[in-house]
Design a protein around this nucleic acid. Structure first.
Length: 364
RNA sequence: UGGGGCGUCGUCAAGCGGUAAGACACAGGAUUUUGGUUCCUGCAUUCGGAGGUUCGAAUCCUCCCGCCCCAG
């Protein structure tokens, strides 16, 4: 490939770019335009107070591209917000961005492109694709390992991926920032997005409001022996690996080891107790061309965004479940395996599949 | 009310005559298309209280208050 993302679409073909108002999507659109694509922008409105819609309008104006707007609030509410809330209710830590990319953002882009008769779609993700002679599309890490966002895209449908362009895939964040500065794009330098539908980055308040009729109840913070060390204000206020907010004074910090939603217990322990030798991932899917999915195979796994990844052995759990579960055994123990997060499987730079973390095992 | 011990930041805890370490907790910030992690910064003008000795005390003395242990 050409190191700048997948660019093998014929010049002259149109591309619909998802614009968020941030630097990345703006630069992505600009690059495509530079390459000669007829570019149009699409802003997706999720039904929550928009943070940067005005920026999107400015970006589109600056780039002189048509801007479309689509309301996805219905499905977003149904698929993403509800999932997000229910995962916390169940004592897990959701990853709404992955679900959104898979179920909302990319499909909406594709649908809209279909309606417009536009062949390509694009986003500002730091990821790459690679096409085989057979015409299959593989999902690859972005060149900037530190910014690689393939993790967020591991479950995007194959059909969607084959039409997706990632203009930033071969760039570093610094290069993208520099381009934005040079072009004087009307985007804020800062774009810490956090969770896009949660106001003030306060997801706890958001959940409290969501479950106003059936509120989270406080409970005990205990060590592994069951000794009560403190109280928490609801299991939704913590996640596995968390240190701050527990309020336990001690010689060394405590971290959340596990959450028991039935007992409403939060189990804490020392940093060294936070390591797992492996994990069980459920609802595992594989990318069409990965060639994986056998009983046992090797690779690397990322257990959260910005996790550097660790070598691992993947083993099918033969319990008849479909999609299947896999046991993932790390080469070296990993910290804070959080149920509800995604475990994304890689073969080198290539995403081969992944699933959702059920639990870590083998404390060391 | 016999004997012994102890009272320093929210918690634990250094200091033992020279002008209040550190850890945890907490707060703010940085980082970040999830949550968490991590990093940086801040956090006792004051050492249970009142006197006294001293150039100078959290550190020595006296009394008071409170707590703990052993005796009863």
């Amino acid at each position: 490939m050409n190191g700048s993302g997948n660019m093998d679409g014929k010049k002259g073909d149109g591309v619909l770019v998802g614009l968020s108002g941030g630097v990345d999507s703006a630069v992505a659109a600009w690059i495509l335009k530079e390459r000669g694509y007829p570019v149009e922008g699409l802003y997706l409105h999720n039904g929550f107070p928009p943070r940067s819609e005005s920026n999107v309008v400015k970006v589109a104006a600056k780039l002189a591209i048509p801007l479309h707007r689509r309301d996805v609030s219905g499905p977003f509410d149904k698929e993403i917000v509800r999932y997000f809330a229910e995962e916390y209710r169940a004592g897990r830590t959701p990853n709404p961005c992955i679900r959104c990319n898979r179920d909302i953002k990319i499909p909406a882009l594709r649908n809209e492109a279909d309606r417009m008769g536009v062949p390509w779609i694009a986003t500002g993700h730091y990821a790459r694709t690679e096409r085989t002679e057979a015409g299959d599309t593989a999902l690859l890490k972005g060149k900037d390992e530190k910014k690689d966002q393939s993790y967020f895209l591991f479950q995007v449908a194959d059909d969607d991926l084959s039409r997706l362009l990632f203009p930033l895939g071969g760039l570093t964040k610094e290069e993208v920032r520099e381009m934005a500065r040079r072009l004087d794009l009307p985007v804020s330098e800062k774009e810490s997005q956090e969770i896009c539908f949660v106001p003030d980055d306060d997801y706890v308040s958001f959940l409290n409001a969501f479950f106003a009729g059936d509120p989270f109840l406080p409970g005990a913070i205990r060590d592994r022996r069951g000794r009560v060390l403190g109280r928490h204000r609801g299991i939704h206020t913590v996640t596995v690996g968390q240190r701050r907010g527990l309020g336990i004074a001690s010689e060394k910090p405590y971290y959340v080891l596990a959450i028991d939603p039935e007992a409403r217990d939060v189990i804490v322990g020392r940093e060294e107790e936070l390591f797992s030798r492996g994990l069980v991932a459920r609802a595992v899917t594989f990318r069409e061309i990965s060639g994986k999915g056998g009983q046992v195979f090797e690779g690397t796994v990322k257990i959260r965004y910005r996790h550097p990844g660790v070598s691992a052995t993947f083993q099918l759990v033969n319990d008849g479940e479909s999609p299947p579960a896999f046991r993932v055994l790390f080469r070296t123990p990993q910290k804070a395996v959080a149920p509800g997060q995604a475990a994304v499987f890689y073969d080198g730079n290539r995403v081969v599949g992944g699933g959702w973390i059920e639990e870590g095992f083998g404390e060391s």
